[in-house]
């Protein structure tokens, strides 16, 4: 029982940063835009959190700074893809490369300095201690689930992502909605990085996300663009990630390199499974995903 609780706690701790990023990805893709910059946004979120917290020791200031950085980079992606209609895939890749380089550059001076006790924890009795990030991620799942499926905002967002021309005729501001979704979603991706740094592995190291941003993009598909699905997918993923780590601690004879491959192989397996299952059905993906919207298509 003790071991089980420990395993579960570790699974949630590993899954929560992914959850922020996956929710951000769902938000953005619902509006019909692909954001492949998740890895770069996470790194920028993490380095911002580390730098600002070390300088100010203030959690609110740190979180605000992380949101600001995520929002600004999101604005950049939105400007390139929504206004300039640049290729969304290339813009996302650029964001990942830029974020990786910039975070390494900015974080050089604070590499290896540990942060501790930055995030308050709340005691929930039998459930143990739950940190602020985990609590807010749960609240976020509920809020987004309601917003996406039970409000007119969610309906409009779906219209913008599925059929922007119709949405435009209905009087929905397509470009505005897309800007909003990309900026808000990118903020969440930055928060995921901050979460990773402040709770999961509290020391800034260059490239510390090790592909988690990309895994989250895969989890968006696994979660079928549904916040509750994202919760299940991320915790499940965190569980398997933890399991590999525990096996290693327990003195498994399998070389650690193979255990470290597991999350990546698992992501591939999950994607193949989803692809195989939805092969002959209509995908739940927003139908206008990745296609820029041009109001007067004259050229």
């Amino acid at each position: 029982m003790e071991l089980f609780t420990q395993l579960l706690t570790a699974a949630v701790a590993s899954g929560t940063p992914l959850l922020f990023v996956t929710l951000g990805g769902i938000f953005i893709e619902k509006a019909g835009i692909i954001q492949l910059g998740a890895e770069g946004l996470m790194l920028m979120g993490a380095v911002t959190a580390a730098g600002v917290y070390l300088a100010t020791s203030s959690l609110p200031v740190t979180l605000l700074a992380v949101l600001l950085v995520g929002g600004l980079l999101g604005l950049l992606h939105a400007f390139l893809t929504v206004t300039l209609r640049a290729n969304q895939i290339v813009s996302g890749l650029a964001l990942t490369l830029f974020g990786g380089g910039l975070s390494a550059y900015l974080g050089k001076a604070i590499t290896g300095i540990p942060l501790s006790g930055a995030v308050p924890k709340f005691d929930f009795g039998v459930l143990g201690q739950v940190d602020l990030f985990t609590l807010s991620s749960l609240a976020l799942v509920v809020v987004l689930q309601i917003a996406f499926f039970h409000t007119s905002f969610g309906l409009h967002l779906k219209a913008v992502g599925d059929n922007p021309a119709t949405a435009d005729v209905m009087g929905i501001r397509v470009q505005g909605m897309r800007y909003f979704a990309v900026i808000a979603g990118s903020m969440l991706m930055g928060l995921g990085g901050a979460n990773l740094l402040m709770v999961f592995s509290p020391t800034w190291i260059e490239g510390m996300t090790t592909g988690r941003g990309w895994i989250a993009i895969a989890l968006v598909i696994f979660a079928r663009w549904n916040p509750l699905g994202a919760l299940a997918a991320c915790w499940f993923f965190g569980f398997l990630d933890t399991l590999g780590f525990r096996l290693q601690l327990a003195g498994s004879t399998v070389p650690p390199y193979f255990l470290k491959m597991l999350p990546y192989l698992l992501t591939i397996a999950v994607l193949i499974l989803v692809g195989w299952r939805t092969q002959h059905r209509m995908s739940r993906a927003p139908q206008a995903l990745g296609i820029p919207y041009i109001r007067e298509q004259r050229f």
């Binding site: 770069g40 964001l95 990786g100 910039l102 390494a104």
Partner: peptide, 10 residues
């Protein structure tokens, strides 16, 4: 140099 590469692509 990574920073420059990302900026160039943007």
């Amino acid at each position: 140099s990574n920073l420059l590469q990302g900026a160039v692509l943007f």
